[in-house]
């Protein structure tokens, strides 16, 4: 990770790493409302079979997940919980917002208790429209996300949020340095990785 963070990878290597990441997405399912059933149909039913895309739908905790599918109506009471579980996911993390409610409030656009879109709480990568979207639509959303990951500059993605390291820690070669750390650390880590 430190390697990716510091140096511009050669294109074939970053392509390979991206290929691997895009095809081993661990999905944390966030079933909220009607869409949860269509998500369950996409992930759980033999007809749609999401695992052929390399998506693994059953991590027990957000701490193991790369991708979260927010499917359903987000209420004002639920929004802080979503924020907190999103923060528990490790970088790099991706969000698919599934269904009109999660996209913009949907049919509850005028409700007093519904958040008008999950993107007011967390950043969203792919929006899947529909009320609810068919399982095929969710699969297309996942494919779109995979294409996006494939084209991604990993360096930029990793710099998205700084990783906090205690300042008193020894400048070990294995500790990922925050962005803007001294250039020697990155040189050492690059050297060690090559060895």
């Amino acid at each position: 990770m430190a390697l990716v963070d510091k140096v511009k990878l050669p294109k074939p290597l970053s392509w390979l790493l991206n290929f691997g990441r895009a095809r081993s997405l661990w999905v944390y399912q966030w079933g909220l409302a009607c869409c949860a059933i269509e998500m369950g149909a996409a992930f759980g039913s033999p007809r749609y079979d999401v695992m052929r895309l390399g998506v693994i739908p059953f991590p027990a905790s957000p701490r193991q997940a790369d991708l979260v599918v927010i499917s359903g109506t987000v209420t004002d009471k639920m929004a802080p919980v979503i924020r907190r579980l999103y923060e528990q996911m490790p970088e790099p993390k991706y969000v698919i917002s599934m269904g009109s409610c999660a996209n913009c409030g949907g049919p509850y656009w005028d409700s007093y208790s519904v958040t008008k879109g999950v993107d007011q709480v967390i950043p969203v990568d792919v929006y899947v429209p529909g009320c609810p979207p068919r399982p095929e639509a969710l699969l297309e959303g996942i494919v779109l996300l995979q294409e996006r990951i494939q084209r991604e500059d990993m360096q930029e993605r990793w710099r998205g949020e700084p990783i906090v390291v205690p300042t008193s820690a020894p400048s070990s070669t294995r500790v990922p340095a925050p962005p803007g750390a001294s250039s020697t650390a990155s040189a050492v880590s690059a050297g060690s990785a090559q060895a």
Binding site: T75, K77, Y108, D110, Y112, S113, V114
Partner: peptide, 13 residues
Amino acid sequence: GYMHRGYEKLCEV
């Protein structure tokens, strides 16, 4: 209440 969407009020409008 985590899924309270206010149907009864929305039906009125």
